[in-house]
Design a protein around this nucleic acid. Structure first.
Lengths: 265, 265
DNA sequence: TAGTGGTCTAGACCACATC
DNA sequence: ATGTGGTCTAGACCACTAA
């Protein structure tokens, strides 16, 4: 059956052009539709982070398409870092828990190229009404409450731990019920792994806005630099499934012995 | 002929395992080998930027593989931005000349989200012995000479053009013969399009190191900020085919009304 | 040995661009 | 009408993993 319309899903070119399709292009390649279905299963928790998903052949049977079509859908989800393929074992839901990198989105590197290996120190964790700017970024009403977490990241420089990053993290309280400084401090792995396991919130991608700013009193004290010293300000908005923003973070980086690395292509 | 060894190229699994392959894995998937061949043709100038390359079927015939295998090779080159596919027309060599973006690698955006639309002003273009740091980055001997180009980028802010970026660009003189401030100023399109057309040097990817620094006297004067004002320092090393570094650039960005944008995933 | 993803093929048809 | 890339299928075999 070479006819894609044999599938139960809408296939392009099957039948006459739908007038509705003119206005809003409701036809899309089969593999895109499969991708959407897989995304829905991921978002709905049918397969949890770290678990195997059904084999390509099983999925092909389920969706009544060929293995190659499923393959292309999975390929795209794999390049989006939502799935991880392991030859001979299967395809797994990506998880922050078993990642080689401690800090998923942190682009900071030591100038000498050595491993970062930073420790963290939580300063406080408070529940507040969302400030206007935070509410806007996270898509909340001004009346809703959010967690404000503040922490330092420290790197070994000349044999002594020195503060390098001062993070201020904002999280919708409705999504992160029962967060506390104690629970955060108790964790050892990546913070995003903790969020994923405890709150079922998985960070998928993020947008960053980087600026150079002058250290204010508090930043200067915490990062052990002079007031007015130039710092990198990194404002990060992280998204979960369905492009829903779920974390706003404002980091101040001391870039004397480190730099923010970026690859362009 | 389902046997891939029918191809004139080395195919995985064809014949007995080569002992040499143990030490250095000389076997690779067919489509990777095709990709390498295509890369060589691109690098060798068989197809020039903006031109069409042969159709998938022609290439499949030439390399004695199936269309699907060529397709996968081209797919990867297209995601690397080396080729551009256009349905119904063909596959084209990517070019900086007909790009929608004036500044290929510049991540700077206005805070209000409006279009950047920056003008440039060349300051000077000098031929110098490569400073140690520049020579090291570009893989040159300290004795070799380089071009040093300096320029400003200006954006309309409150109706007046204000300097936002101060770039210092280093280019190996051996590759860019006969560069001059006049020739640079005369150009209207992207500078990389000029390099591509005039010197046959095509920028493919780049690495950036971003820091916050304090403005020195010269930067303060040129960017119209106070001495010591925080500036974004962006050190960019650009590569051409074969991962050869061919441009070092150090930009100072005034990030009062702009920010450096980055997408993480 | 069996099951998984990875590669490769051959052929069909569709969507788009051009003549 | 023709040629291009884009999608989809069916089936083969390979490489890797684990029982």
């Amino acid at each position: 059956m070479a006819d894609p319309s044999a599938a139960t899903i809408l296939a392009p070119g099957s039948g006459l052009p739908d007038p509705v399709a003119e206005a809003t292009p409701s036809f899309s390649p089969l593999y895109q539709q499969i991708k959407e279905l897989l995304l829905r299963s991921l978002q709905g928790g049918e397969w949890k982070p770290g678990e195997v998903i059904p084999s390509e052949i099983d999925l092909a049977t389920r969706y009544k398409v060929s293995q190659g079509t499923v393959r292309k859908a999975i390929d795209e989800l794999a390049t989006d870092n939502l799935l991880v393929r392991r030859q001979g074992k299967g395809t797994f839901v990506a998880t922050h828990a078993e990642e080689r990198t401690q800090y998923r989105f942190l682009r900071l590197q030591r100038d000498d190229g050595a491993a970062a290996g930073m420790r963290r120190r939580f300063l406080d964790c408070r529940r507040l009404r969302a400030p206007a700017e935070v509410a806007r970024a996270l898509g909340l009403k001004a009346s809703e409450s959010v967690w404000q977490v503040r922490r330092l990241l420290l790197a070994e420089i000349d044999g002594r731990p020195r503060p390098v990053v001062f993070d201020e993290i904002w999280l919708p309280a409705a999504l992160f019920k029962g967060l506390s400084a104690e629970r955060l401090s108790g964790q050892r792995g990546p913070m995003y792994a903790f969020f994923e396991a405890e709150f079922g919130v998985r960070m998928i991608r993020a947008d960053e806005k980087v600026r150079a700013v002058a250290a204010d009193d508090e930043a200067a004290r915490l990062l052990e630099v002079g007031v007015g010293a130039p710092l990198l300000s990194v404002e990060r908005l992280s998204y979960t499934y369905g492009d829903r923003p779920v974390e706003l973070r404002r980091g101040l980086y001391h870039t004397a012995a480190h730099h923010y690395r970026n690859q362009l292509n």
